[in-house]
């Protein structure tokens, strides 16, 4: 009887340990998301995306991205994107209302026919403007949608990292699991590896350069490489600015049609 109690107690302790371990892994992911995608009240940046195919062909996407938080980290956000390049899509604008727990609303303005069109929410893991980043990679995935475990802690380069394994709770994701290296100091993700059931590692994210902007550590160069297709996307952030005072009214159909120069230049 006594031994049974001891075993039960031991089991209990182990169980608690593992749950607290899991909870802390989830904490890390939440903090990382806050640091990566919710820094400041608002954020303005010029984004250059270089899409490179296996054979070395290149496509450039250049846009101004405006982001504003409407709530806590992990909560509602609005995005306003103005395209500069390629040349024939100049003046195209794209707007996203992101809600926690339900599908985002999206609108697109097509200047050639002067039309704003709502775009249905869909696969969060479909490609963002033809890049190797999915919509989810750009605007974030709900932390609770995955089970996170801390697999180890190790140095990546010269920085101490948590290595967290995230397994989707629902089975319809592209990946079977993901490993993230989260820097202990600024909580930014330095590397992510995506694995699928069939062929193992197939997609790798790396944060290649981090700068501190208005006190916020910001990833200014990042890469996503698809190892299966050989396609890669290289992203550079320039003119990043936080708390610029983006007005709420900007995120409207009216400004989608006529984006104010001040914000998109």
């Amino acid at each position: 009887m006594k031994t049974l109690m001891t075993v039960a107690a031991a089991l209990g302790v182990m169980l608690m340990a593992s749950t607290s371990f899991a909870a802390s892994a989830e904490e890390v992911m939440k903090k990382s998301q806050a640091a990566f995608l919710y820094q400041g009240k608002d954020f303005k940046v010029r984004v250059t995306m270089r899409l490179v195919s296996k054979s070395g062909q290149e496509r450039i996407r250049e846009m101004t991205m405006l982001r504003k938080n409407f709530g806590e980290p992990g909560g509602e956000q609005k995005y306003f994107i103005y395209f500069h390049k390629p040349a024939d899509v100049k003046d195209m604008t794209f707007m996203v209302y992101k809600y926690p727990g339900r599908d985002a609303d999206r609108w697109l303005f097509v200047p050639a026919i002067n039309m704003v069109k709502r775009i249905a929410a869909q696969d969060k893991h479909s490609s963002f403007v033809g890049s190797d980043f999915s919509y989810e990679d750009v605007s974030g995935r709900k932390v609770e949608d995955d089970t996170h475990t801390l697999t180890k802690e190790e140095k990546l380069g010269n920085r101490d990292c948590y290595v967290i394994k995230s397994v989707p709770r629902a089975g319809d994701m592209d990946y079977a699991y993901k490993l993230s290296w989260i820097a202990k100091d600024d909580m930014l993700p330095l590397k992510e590896e995506y694995y699928d059931k069939r062929s193992g590692l197939y997609k790798v994210f790396t944060a290649d350069e981090t700068k501190v902007v208005k006190g916020f550590p910001t990833v200014t160069k990042r890469t996503m490489k698809n190892l299966q297709s050989g396609h890669g996307t290289y992203v550079t952030y320039t003119d990043a600015d936080y708390d610029a005072g983006i007005p709420d009214s900007l995120f409207s159909e009216r400004y989608l049609r006529q984006p104010p120069r001040k914000w998109v230049e």
């Binding site: 195919s53 195209m92 097509v110 050639a112 403007v129 297709s229």
Partner: peptide, 29 residues
């Protein structure tokens, strides 16, 4: 459509959400 802009924007719109291979298979970069 009648203009190059409209064609470019349609294709861009399509590429915003479609699989990259859809367009890659029919036009080069």
């Amino acid at each position: 459509p009648d203009t190059k802009e409209a064609i470019g924007q349609y294709l861009f719109l399509f590429a915003m959400s479609a699989k990259p291979s859809d367009l890659d298979n029919v036009v080069d970069y």
